[in-house]
Design a protein around this nucleic acid. Structure first.
Lengths: 122, 122
DNA sequence: GTAATATATGAACGCTTGCTCATATATCTC
DNA sequence: GAGATATATGAGCAAGCGTTCATATATTAC
């Protein structure tokens, strides 16, 4: 009933609730970290990108090989590679007219595998 | 130069390329698994959902407490909880007018933490 | 030089997503 | 019963996303 330092919780037990809310807020992931984390997962949230990473986990591949392997247009693959590059999940090297892409680090493979475990675990 | 069993790769070395493509295709994640995996990551690809899961990793919370903790509308939180419920990432129990949500299993926490490691690792 | 190949990218379009707002349902208090 | 509280949900809308198509750039072959 007393006004208190409550934020906006209107649950029946406002006092206790306020304390729980404040404690939760204190331990909550900060906004920046939450956004970064969401961004990381978002990079892996599309089937095409997942398949690209799956292909690259075997060996480096040029754009055309990726397109042929996934049976998708070169343009679609290039656009997705752009996204993956922005996220620093892949690196590339040029060789003549070809551009070979590879996974940027093994850490993303760990995350990838971790997701796979979850899928198989269900 | 020979037509071969090539799929659609037109790289200069079409033969070798075809072999690499076929080998890549063979080891590639199948479509269903790729989609499931993408779906799993997509569930974690939004800052609001990340923050909800972060809050629930501390303790179970009712909708209103979540809304207050994240300083978001009850409706927005409810909609996201619906999504998380669909993905079986949270479970809930009713107690009077309240509905308390909690993480559904520890496995999602592993994946969550794995993503955090990646973010901090960068 | 021209032609072909390999890749990147901008525009457009349809689909999805995350929010708000209004409202429905359920429970509790009186 | 009426009114307040807690949650869920449908409609609507603006923003984002993933593709295609057309085109630009770069390299190689001739």
């Amino acid at each position: 009933m007393k006004p208190g330092v409550d934020i906006s919780a209107e649950c029946e037990f406002s006092g206790t609730d306020g304390a729980r809310v404040q404690e939760t807020q204190g331990k909550l992931l900060d906004d920046l970290t939450a956004s970064k984390l969401a961004r990381t997962f978002k990079a892996l949230s599309d089937p095409t990108r997942v398949r690209i990473l799956s292909a690259l986990s075997q060996r480096e591949l040029c754009v055309h090989e990726l397109a042929a392997s996934l049976e998708m247009s070169q343009s679609a693959i290039s656009h997705q590679l752009h996204t993956l590059r922005d996220m620093r999940l892949v690196r590339f090297r040029k060789e003549g007219r070809h551009v070979y892409y590879a996974l940027d680090d093994e850490h993303i493979e760990v995350l990838f595998q971790c997701g796979l475990d979850h899928v198989e675990h269900e």
